[in-house]
Design a protein around this nucleic acid. Structure first.
Length: 792
DNA sequence: GATTGCGCGATTTTT
DNA sequence: TCGCGCAATC
């Protein structure tokens, strides 16, 4: 038996060694999915399958790169470089690069990112004289995107009764018209948007039998990762490709399907079993990632979803610590708590920054974490923000490159036609655009034949200078590589000079960004000219098609010792020793947008499942009583998902003593009721009185402008302290210096009364004392925040 | 053509 | 609240 098969469990072994015919692997979270996929590919190659004949489709470029690397390691040779591994989008873009002419596109087609798509939509909506308040590019785009992902073209969209009804109901009957116009405008521009990369690939295979034949025989073995997140187009494409050999292997976990808003459908998993006869189904149910506590919580919560593939995810790992549930007063407190706890955990358990991840539902939540981490001097990085390629100066520069490669690219052309300023003003552009529409030619063609359209001589000269310059760049394409062309562009357009002359800080940053872009083009140009077994020309067109499909996550260096901040979506497929999930509140998680149907809610629950299962050893779930949203203070209830967690694996006592510690265990009430009552005060014990009690059920508007910002006394909680025995501070109460507090010392707390220190823990930066109070039982007191008077 | 100011909308997730 | 886009102005 080959060595690489030795480390596999029974199910993994079965999945790896099944050679021919369709197979579906249901892989629970942390069950060694990547290991199985990579070992399987290595095994196929060991059995003599040529790497050139294997296609593996992943969800991210990063996953693809990781896969190749691991296969190389298993095989101990360089054969893996000949594998065809990549995302759906990048693999199809690569194929279309060679075949697009077959369906009427230039092979050097441009790929439009979401910004470009929105731009085209804006133009089209204006041209149709539609109200852009009603037809917001974002809304329209997602509608069109859904249609494309479901293989519904403009014509079908327009006549489909159900779709039309939906659009009528939302008072947007013209979407069909916009879709049509958008599609033909993209086509005219020689451009494909993200969805087109799939749709046109399907069209290509479906209408060009010889092309289909070619790729069916090239890809003798097909593997698809994250199958639960595929959409109908992806399903149909892979079905076509696999039709000749039916050696198709899909791996997925229905419990982790979190992209239905993008058209993904779990239906594909069911359909798969119907479409292929004798599908072998293997379930990977042993989890190697998380502690029992973490896994049990995840399992218990996901049980509330109906209609899953039955499976029993279990682990041999140790029980581990309980999951900590922490309630704070505000989102800022939440941020502070997390930063403090990271600091404390680093010292206590010898973690590094990179061991921590802070996960959240929406990007907006990152702010409070950032502030706190920065204040404490903890290095962090936010993943998934504005990508490098979305910066204005980068887009400007790239727009030149795009126009040079494809003059039909109107979006890019409009962007640079008068940047830097060269005397082609708004009215000129307006006129040229109208002429282009009237004559049904491209904007570029109008510019080339500007003499025929009666522009003033000055304007005409400006236009001619511009087109001459672009055409000069085009002459370079033949014998210069991407990097050389880019450098010429920087010089001759005056772009570099323009940026360099801006001496403001931002201007300097912009200049440096463009330099970085030039460097990266150079680097790409000089890298080996094969990829996935194909010789790749290092020309501009190829470069541009690649970078559009790059996301920030793909460029990240793994090794940096930083705390990672990202959305839960972005965290899919990753794992971290310590995880914080923030904002576990109603209206955030589950999102207020996704609680209207059972389907939506179940997807939120799966998202929760994904969040929890990212953690290997330790997990905190935090939520705030109130947080700022659009400048208003909003109160949220704890997430319903918290109710669904099994009590045995949860520690609610952490931050400042929980309800369970507050004496009298008899009438604790349900877990949820206790959560609602609150867990004492993390931030400032002196204010606790104001805050205890059930949180208000309704949103409470922020008090007037003069409400002191530093003291969040806005919460209209009834002043009755639910469970805290009253204590009136001694007249001589002054906070003592507690930096040398020792076990056994007697202390007074303003609210909890007198007690004795029974345990000291935490770090020097964030010491925590456990105090046995005479009246209020045992509490954890964070000395940085709570004030204690040392009695003796 | 650039600058300023005002008003309005935004926050679910992204290849 | 904040940031962006658009309109009015020099």
């Amino acid at each position: 038996m080959q060595d690489y098969l030795k480390g596999l469990n029974e199910q993994q072994y079965a999945a790896v060694t099944h050679k021919d015919g369709p197979i579906m692997i249901v892989a629970g979270a942390g069950s060694g999915k990547t290991k199985v996929l990579t070992t399987r590919i290595a095994h196929l190659m060991a059995l003599g399958v040529d790497a050139f004949n294997i296609l593996a489709l992943t969800f991210t470029n990063k996953a693809a790169a990781e896969m190749k690397e691991r296969i190389s390691k298993i095989l101990g040779n360089n054969e893996a470089r000949n594998l065809y591994v990549g995302t759906f989008h990048s693999v199809f873009a690569r194929i279309l690069r060679g075949e697009a002419h077959r369906i009427g596109y230039p092979n050097s087609f441009t790929i439009y990112d979401s910004d470009d798509s929105r731009g085209v939509l804006k133009t089209v909506i204006n041209e149709l004289n539609l109200d852009d308040k009603l037809y917001k590019p974002n809304v329209v785009h997602s509608r069109i995107s859904q249609a494309k992902n479901a293989l519904v073209g403009p014509a079908e969209y327009a006549i489909d009764h159900y779709i039309q009804q939906e659009d009528m109901r939302s008072n947007r009957p013209a979407i069909a018209q916009i879709y049509q116009a958008y599609a033909s405008r993209c086509f005219k521009n020689g451009a494909m948007d993200f969805d087109d990369l799939l749709l046109k690939m399907y069209e290509l295979l479906n209408t060009q039998p010889d092309v289909l034949h070619k790729y069916q025989h090239k890809f003798k073995y097909i593997l698809i990762d994250e199958y639960q997140d595929t959409n109908p187009v992806q399903y149909q494409i892979t079905k076509l490709l696999a039709a000749a050999n039916e050696n198709i292997c899909v791996v997925g976990d229905d419990a982790q399907s979190i992209y239905s808003f993008r058209g993904a459908t779990i239906e594909n998993i069911l359909q798969f079993q119907k479409d292929y006869e004798d599908v072998k189904v293997v379930k990977l149910e042993q989890n190697y990632r998380s502690t029992k506590s973490i896994l049990n919580v995840a399992n218990e919560v996901i049980k509330n979803n109906k209609g899953q593939i039955p499976k029993n995810l279990w682990t041999d790992n140790e029980g581990g610590e309980k999951i900590r549930l922490v309630r704070t007063m505000t989102d800022n407190d939440e941020g502070r708590f997390v930063a403090d706890t990271i600091q404390e955990q680093k010292l206590r358990n010898h973690y590094h920054n990179k061991d921590f991840a802070i996960l959240y539902r929406t990007n907006a939540q990152s702010r409070s974490y950032e502030e706190s981490l920065r204040r404490m001097g903890i290095a962090y990085k936010i993943f998934g923000g504005l990508s490098f390629y979305q910066r204005k100066e980068i887009k400007d520069f790239i727009a030149y490159l795009r126009v040079i490669v494809n003059t039909r690219d109107e979006e890019a052309l409009k962007r640079i036609i008068n940047y830097p300023v060269r005397g082609i003003g708004k009215t000129t552009i307006e006129r040229a655009l109208i002429a282009a529409n009237e004559q049904n030619v491209t904007l570029w063609e109008v510019l080339m034949r500007a003499g025929e359209f009666g522009f003033k001589s000055g304007t005409l000269e400006a236009i001619n200078n511009f087109t001459t310059m672009i055409r000069y760049f085009q002459t370079l394409l033949n014998d210069k590589n991407a990097s050389d062309v880019a450098v010429q562009v920087g010089k001759h357009t005056g772009l570099i000079k323009d940026l360099f002359s801006d001496k403001t800080t931002e201007g300097l940053a912009r200049y440096e960004n463009v330099q970085e872009l030039l460097n990266s083009i150079k680097e790409w140009t000089e890298s080996p000219d094969t990829e996935d077994g194909e010789v790749v020309n290092k020309n501009l067109a190829v470069y541009l098609q690649q970078i559009t499909l790059l996301t920030d996550a793909d460029n990240e260096k793994e090794d940096a010792d930083v705390v990672k901040l990202m959305t839960i979506h972005a965290a899919k497929g990753l794992e971290f020793p310590v995880v914080f999930v923030g904002g576990v509140e109603e209206t955030i998680f589950p999102s207020a947008m996704s609680i209207n149907t059972r389907e939506e809610l179940e997807e939120e629950r799966r998202l929760f499942y994904v969040a929890v299962t990212r953690a290997k050893a330790r997990l905190w779930l935090t939520y705030a009583n109130a947080r700022y949203r659009f400048g208003n203070l909003v109160q949220n209830e704890p997430s319903r998902f918290l109710e669904e967690m099994p009590e045995d694996y949860i520690d609610r006592s952490f931050a400042g003593g929980g309800a369970r510690n507050q004496g009298g265990n008899d009438n604790m009430g349900s877990a949820f009721q206790r959560m609602q009552r609150g867990f004492g005060d993390y931030n400032d014990a002196a204010q606790a009185e104001k805050r205890y009690g059930a949180p208000p059920q309704k949103k409470v508007p922020l008090l007037g402008k003069d409400a002191p910002a530093s003291k969040p006394s806005y919460i209209n909680a009834p002043p009755k302290p639910a469970q805290v025995a009253n204590h009136t501070p001694s007249a001589n109460f002054t906070a003592s210096d507690t930096s040398n507090l020792k076990v056994g010392q007697k202390v007074e707390h303003q609210k909890f009364g007198f007690g004795a220190v029974i345990k000291m823990e935490g770090s020097a930066h964030n010491p925590i004392a456990t105090v046995q109070f005479e009246l209020n039982g045992e509490k954890k007191i964070m000395l940085n925040y709570a004030k204690l008077r040392i009695v003796e």
